[in-house]
């Protein structure tokens, strides 16, 4: 068992590196402890700066580093793997009391948008079935597993920063990793495209046709031959981009 004096000294040093408050930290060389605080924050700022370069640029170094400081001081980082830690900044900013969210309404969405690129780039590999070209909607299908579908409210993927707050809307986006090159790509979607891909993910029959029927009937759209043809053309497009395959 650790004596209370031992664990307390450890807690005080750890707390000092996070907060800068050295109260009660007596049995240490006080002129040296700022090195620990500097080293710890260097890691945090580096990792967060690399994960969120757009956020850093938009907030500017000073505000971004203040955000890093407040985050690390107030939030207990849970991840044993430091490269996964940036995701925790999103939760921190999403807190309803977050002053950062109030000051910058786009911030949670921008952080998520930047994080998803990393998340998809690093997603754990899984075993894939043999994949084929799409020729008809009667085929069973397979969706590239390394992807995320999101609907942004700010057009941060295609408009300059100044227009984000004045162009609020619904912007469905697919972010996915190419199976061969491992590069991450962004694909703007129509609402129909978004719903159809969401249905493809969840439909247990894994048949294009029933998925298409489900999506269209959920929107009260009549299923016509023209509709099916244009959906097939779109599927072939997605197939070429490596998003959907037949199996």
């Amino acid at each position: 068992m650790l004596k209370e004096t031992t664990s307390l000294a450890q807690q005080k040093l750890a707390n000092y590196t996070r907060t800068g408050d050295s109260t009660g930290l007596t049995e240490a060389r006080l002129e040296r402890i700022p090195q620990y605080r500097r080293l710890v924050y260097n890691v945090i700022k580096d990792i967060l700066g690399q994960a969120f370069p757009i956020t850093k640029k938009i907030l500017g170094n000073e505000d971004f580093f203040n955000l890093c400081n407040d985050f690390f001081k107030e939030h207990n980082c849970k991840n044993t793997q430091v490269w996964k830690m940036p995701k925790e900044l999103i939760d921190y900013v999403n807190d309803e009391n977050s002053a950062y969210k109030l000051a910058h309404t786009f911030l949670p969405e921008l952080l998520l948008f930047e994080w998803l690129e990393i998340e998809i780039h690093t997603m754990t590999n899984i075993e894939l079935p043999k994949l084929y070209k799409i020729d008809s909607i009667a085929q069973p299908y397979f969706v590239n597993p390394y992807h995320k579908l999101i609907v942004l409210q700010h057009p941060l993927h295609n408009k300059p920063f100044k227009q984000w707050n004045t162009n609020l809307g619904q912007y469905p986006i697919l972010i996915y990793r190419n199976l061969r090159t491992h590069k991450v790509h962004f694909e703007e979607l129509s609402i129909f495209g978004y719903l159809f891909l969401s249905e493809l993910q969840s439909n247990s029959t894994r048949l294009f046709e029933s998925t298409l029927v489900n999506t269209l009937s959920a929107q009260n759209v009549a299923i016509t031959d023209a509709q099916i043809l244009s959906s097939l053309a779109w599927l072939k497009e997605l197939n070429k981009k490596g998003i959907v395959f037949s199996v």
């Binding site: 004596k3 620990y36 207990n76 044993t80 830690m85």
Partner: peptide, 18 residues
């Protein structure tokens, strides 16, 4: 420490209980 990762190496007190 205190349920938070620091991502750096802090010194353990050189004590018998540690």
């Amino acid at each position: 420490c205190d349920n938070a990762h620091l991502y750096d190496l802090l010194p353990i007190p050189f004590t018998e209980d540690a």
